[in-house]
């Protein structure tokens, strides 16, 4: 049986891992390559790196960091932040990443999804999205897409955007709830379930993981294929093994050999 993936997320700022609530009050957590190596050895299934300022500072992604990570770990990882062109995608993939994650640039230029999938394969193209609960009548799902690190509302319906991205060739969707992000109070189950039930590609739940029960919930109740964890492991409160043991005991298939 295909296992549910546990994916630590490392937010990168100036070559360091950082964590803040809603992109504010960021604190330094450590070296990205060291942290990636540790989570790899502890049995995480995949990793994701977001260069959280590359985009706003309009600078290219740190390829040397990607290369170092690729040398250090032998599991797939995705890289996002500051990827705005096919050339950016190509550079990141050749540096050793398995996938590229595009969020704001995909909203501003949806062809990027289509062209990226055609050139590199759909399995390489991850659509990241930051939906927020909204009563905007243009958003019948009740969730609106935000861009530029939650700062800008787009009037785009989250479910419609997910379906469109799938039809354009996205291989996976990371649903990062603005409402839940950084709260560690549990994932936003509703929007995750809506997208998981109405698309045919894997859905990665993101934002709000605070304990293993939250992960069990999003797998069982929302049908997520994978879940992103950050604060709950970065603080040392939980280990990957603890999370996997609890999920296993709850009857959820997880990878047990590493």
């Amino acid at each position: 049986m295909l296992t549910k993936r546990i994916i630590p997320c490392l937010d990168i700022h100036e070559r360091r891992v950082t964590k803040g609530v809603r992109f504010k009050n960021n604190i330094d957590l450590g070296d990205p390559v060291e942290m990636a190596t540790r989570y790899y050895e502890e049995g995480c299934d995949e990793l994701v790196f977001y260069d959280i300022t590359a985009s706003s500072e309009r600078r290219p992604i740190d390829l040397e960091m990607v290369r170092e990570v690729a040398r250090a770990i032998r599991i797939p990882f995705a890289v996002g932040g500051g990827i705005t062109s096919l050339d950016d995608m190509s550079a990141v993939l050749l540096a050793g990443a398995e996938k590229v994650s595009i969020n704001t640039p995909a909203v501003l230029n949806p062809e990027l999804i289509e062209e990226g999938a055609r050139r590199f394969g759909a399995q390489c193209i991850v659509l990241g999205m930051d939906p927020v609960r909204s009563d905007n009548p243009a958003c019948p799902s009740g969730y609106e897409i935000t861009i530029r690190g939650f700062r800008e509302y787009t009037g785009i319906d989250a479910l419609e955007w997910a379906r469109r991205a799938e039809s354009m060739g996205a291989g996976e969707i990371v649903v990062n709830s603005v409402d839940a992000d950084g709260t560690r109070a549990g994932f936003e189950l509703n929007i995750t379930r809506l997208i998981a039930e109405n698309t045919g590609i894997p859905v990665v739940a993101s934002g709000g993981a605070g304990n293993p029960r939250h992960l069990a919930e999003v797998f069982i109740k929302a049908g997520a294929d994978a879940a992103i964890v950050a604060g709950m492991i970065h603080t040392g409160e939980y280990s990957i093994a603890q999370i996997k043991n609890e999920l296993h005991q709850a009857g959820i298939p997880v990878r047990r050999h590493w």
Binding site: T3, R5, Q123, E172, P202
Partner: peptide, 9 residues
């Protein structure tokens, strides 16, 4: 889902 993406025994 198709493709199968992830870890399987």
């Amino acid at each position: 889902k198709v493709p199968q993406m992830g870890w399987n025994a």
